[in-house]
């Protein structure tokens, strides 16, 4: 028997199983829920159920959406011939918040990781290949994370694209020194990438 009442322990267990939440934060949230009035808790439960019921994957880009196709895929103001490939909806959201890209997206839902048994068939790579031919895409920007798995995924997709669509322009997002950083504090790998990705200055 635990030191807390059973229903509270169950709630803490459930919350602690969520990504990014440890037992202490889970307990803090559980106690907050306990202190909240019943109407607020019902609203929370309703929101949780609705998100599960209404949110689905866009049939074009596989981003999460409540309409199909999603707002971005339906937006005529966006460049339909440019696709940015990202690993997860969170990555797409980060790019969208930056406002730096006005094309369309394709969400892979993961990265290649043979050690975890994740191969090309587990990602939305086949769908990307079909989409490029169907939607007459001219440019693909591979924006997977600069991790071992993300880099291998980008290389894998780039090779497939080169074989199937040799006329397609394929880019990798630049890797290197972040804005506002100090070179003195950069690690070796970042500096290596920065020098590999050097670009000519336009004067």
């Amino acid at each position: 028997m635990g030191i807390y009442p059973a229903p509270l322990e169950v709630l803490v267990d459930r919350l602690a199983s969520l990504p990014g939440l440890g037992p202490k934060s889970a307990m803090r949230i559980a106690l907050h829920i306990l202190r909240s009035n019943e109407a607020n808790v019902k609203e929370l439960v309703k929101a949780l159920l609705e998100v599960k019921k209404k949110i689905k994957f866009c049939s074009v880009c596989f981003n999460i959406t409540d309409t199909d196709p999603c707002n971005i895929c339906e937006d005529p103001g966006r460049a339909g011939h440019i696709v940015c490939v990202v690993e997860s909806p969170g990555d797409q959201l980060a790019i969208e918040e930056a406002g730096a890209f006005r094309g369309k997206y394709h969400v892979l839902h993961g990265a290649l990781s043979p050690l975890d048994g994740i191969g090309p068939e587990d990602l939305k790579i086949g769908e990307l290949m079909v989409r490029i031919g169907k939607d007459r895409i001219e440019e693909v920007i591979l924006a997977t994370n600069p991790t071992t798995q993300g880099e291998a995924t980008a290389s894998f997709i780039a090779r497939l694209l080169a074989e199937k669509y040799p006329q397609l322009h394929v880019y990798r997002i630049a890797l290197g020194v972040p804005m506002g950083a100090d070179l003195k504090y950069m690690d070796r790998l970042t500096l290596e990438h920065a020098f590999k990705s050097k670009t000519p200055l336009k004067t």
């Binding site: 290649l112 990781s113 043979p114 071992t148 798995q149 880099e151 291998a152 290389s155 894998f156 090779r159």
Partner: peptide, 17 residues
């Protein structure tokens, strides 16, 4: 070099596994 293609990543993963 392991990150440069899926074949290399797969073999490196196999080595570790």
């Amino acid at each position: 070099g392991i990150r440069e293609n899926f074949e290399s990543l797969s073999l490196a993963s196999y080595v570790i596994e």
